[in-house]
């Protein structure tokens, strides 16, 4: 027997990701409610469970999706161009993660955090081009979720 909310949580999760992929932006609770024909309270409750399971990251209002990893639900300096669409990424890892998730060629638009120099990284389905750059991981893995937005 499934845990309470498990089936709905899966549907909500899929609806959120489908919306992000199609529109490049995170859906509101009303969007998901309308898509699934469920009331807003049920969707909010599903959001809370998905947050607890670290599937989504929510703002304090419990409704605004800050992250649906690897996608950012809010505007960010790290952008990923996939065809005509431009997605926001949470971090360097997620910037490549968007191409991996979409299985599509893409271009990362970022910058060197020390110099501000633009970093443009083409990513094909087989991996990123040979652009000289590195990623610095400032937070140990055991603490990522203590403040995932900072991480």
């Amino acid at each position: 027997m499934s845990a309470p909310g498990t089936e709905l949580d899966g549907l909500v999760r899929q609806t959120v990701y489908r919306h992000v992929v199609e529109t490049t932006r995170a859906p509101g609770v009303a969007d998901v409610s309308a898509a699934l024909g469920r009331d807003r309270t049920a969707i909010r409750d599903a959001y809370a469970r998905l947050f607890a399971r670290r599937v989504l990251v929510l703002a304090a209002d419990g409704e605004t999706i800050v992250m649906a990893p690897p996608f950012s639900g809010v505007a960010a300096q790290l952008r990923k161009q996939v065809g005509a669409k431009e997605y926001f990424a949470n971090c360097s890892w997620d910037a490549l993660g968007i191409a991996a998730a979409l299985r599509a060629d893409a271009v990362v638009h970022s910058r060197c955090e020390q110099s501000g120099e633009p970093l443009i990284i083409p990513v094909e389905r087989t991996g990123p081009g040979p652009v000289p750059c590195v990623a610095h991981f400032a937070v140990p893995a055991a603490r990522w979720w203590a403040d995932i937005v900072y991480t």
């Binding site: 690897p70 890892w93 490549l96 993660g97 991996g127 991981f137 937070v139």
Partner: peptide
Amino acid sequence: LPRRPVVTLPQLWHLATAWYGNRLTP
């Protein structure tokens, strides 16, 4: 801030595909 590990672009791609390669599947 303390200097922490640095990850190369090929390593980052490996992490990205391992972590997110199936993220859009049910």
